[in-house]
């Protein structure tokens, strides 16, 4: 099962350039046409499930607007002899 992740896009920095949308390997990003940022851009957002937290959107973002999180699925290893 792929890792589950999520992102937060800052309205302060996002300029709606769409680079993250074209780079997203899961194709789960689009511009949110229902909202405008204070600068007057439609910000990027994830519109469906499937984000794996790979951070490629953050890697291509020219404005460092994206914060990426990933659910921790790895079980904590039990110490030997416990």
């Amino acid at each position: 099962m792929p890792a589950k992740g999520w992102i937060e896009v800052s309205d302060t920095y996002c300029k709606g350039c769409e680079l993250c949308i074209s780079a997203c390997p899961q194709e789960v990003m689009e511009l949110d046409m229902t909202r405008l940022t204070p600068k007057g851009y439609h910000p990027a957002h994830t519109f469906k499930d499937g984000c794996t937290g790979c951070a490629i959107c953050a890697l291509v973002c020219p404005d460092a607007a994206i914060t990426v999180y990933r659910e921790i699925t790895k079980a904590v290893p039990t110490p030997v002899g416990a």
Partner: peptide, 13 residues
């Protein structure tokens, strides 16, 4: 959704 904490962080500004 899992609560956001420092351990979940993959990338930030």
């Amino acid at each position: 959704m899992v609560a956001t904490n420092a351990n979940n962080l993959v990338y930030e500004r």
